[in-house]
Amino acid sequence: MKKVLLDSISQVISAGILVILGFISMFTYSQITDKPFKTVFKDSITFQFPTYVIILIILGFILITSVVSYLRSNSVSSEVKYLKRKIKAFTSDDYRFTYNDIGLLCRYSVSYNNYTGKPFIHNLKLYCNKHTPPMEMFDGDCNVNRCDNRNADINEFSVQRHLESDIIHRWEEYDKKQKKGS
């Protein structure tokens, strides 16, 4: 929603700038040719300019738009590069988190949500860490009969929310660390 709003606002601003540039060019032309502004304005509406003036206006428009687009692409590309580097730093690894007090090992992956602009967890798997190797848990319970986590009834949704909170906190701290390093 923000992006759509910003795009439409930038289009209105661009149209306004073009109108202002048109008035400036008409005023400049009226000063150069000693014609009244009213006559130049009337000529511009009816397209009664000499050919060389039309060619100069087109070349000026092309020059201005190319400079603006070049400047815009350079400023946006550095932000995009930073965001891609940040996303790669968070999504390239598989994460592990251990709750030592209950013997729970969590393995999960992180992806980036373009809509919210935040990372999120997927492929969360819970393992009972009281065995070697750790055993995968189903429905929040260990499937080994004599294990303490046999009837643990761990809420996977709560674990996921806790881990996502940690990831989002690290996501926000990443910017602070990068600013200190700069």
Rank of each mutant, 00 (worst) to 15 (best):
Y82D: 09
L124Y: 02
E79R: 09
P119A: 07
P119I: 11
R72P: 00
F90A: 04
I121S: 08
N74H: 05
I121Q: 07
S109W: 10
V80A: 14
S92W: 00
S73H: 11
N123V: 00
D94H: 01
L124P: 07
E79H: 04
C128V: 07
L124A: 08
K84V: 08
L71S: 09
H122I: 04
N100A: 15
S77F: 06
Y70N: 12
I102H: 00
I121F: 00
I121C: 04
Y99K: 13
L124S: 09
V80C: 01
L83Y: 01
K84E: 15
L104F: 08
S109L: 05
T132V: 09
G117E: 10
N100L: 13
V67C: 07
Y112E: 03
E79A: 12
K84M: 11
T116Y: 15
T98K: 10
Y108D: 00
F120P: 05
R72K: 13
D93N: 06
Y112C: 01
K118M: 09
N114A: 14
Y70E: 14
Y127K: 05
Y127W: 03
V68K: 06
Y95A: 00
H131L: 04
Y115H: 13
C128Q: 02
Y127S: 09
N123D: 15
Y99G: 01
S92H: 08
L105K: 08
F97C: 05
T116E: 12
F120Y: 15
A89V: 00
R72M: 11
I87V: 15
K88Q: 13
V110H: 01
P133A: 05
T98C: 06
K125C: 11
N100D: 15
Y108W: 03
S109H: 09
S73N: 11
S75L: 09
A89I: 01
K118P: 00
Y95T: 00
N113T: 03
C106N: 08
V80I: 15
P134G: 04
R96F: 14
F120R: 10
L71M: 13
S77W: 06
K86R: 15
S111W: 07
H122P: 03
N129E: 14
P134L: 01
S69E: 11
L124E: 06
Y108K: 02
S66M: 06
K84C: 05
H131P: 08
N114M: 04
I64T: 12
K118F: 11
N113A: 14
C106S: 14
L105N: 08
I64E: 05
V110R: 08
K86V: 05
S77P: 03
C128I: 04
L63Q: 02
N74M: 06
K125E: 14
S66Y: 11
S69K: 03
E79D: 14
L104K: 05
V80K: 15
S109R: 12
N100F: 12
S66L: 13
D93A: 05
V80L: 12
V76C: 09
S78C: 02
F90K: 04
K118Y: 11
D101F: 07
Y112D: 09
S111V: 07
T132H: 12
S75R: 04
S78F: 03
P133G: 04
T98Y: 02
F120M: 07
K84A: 13
F97A: 14
N123Q: 15
R72Q: 05
L71F: 02
N129Y: 14
N123R: 15
L83Q: 11
D101W: 02
N123Y: 09
Y127H: 01
S69A: 10
H131M: 06
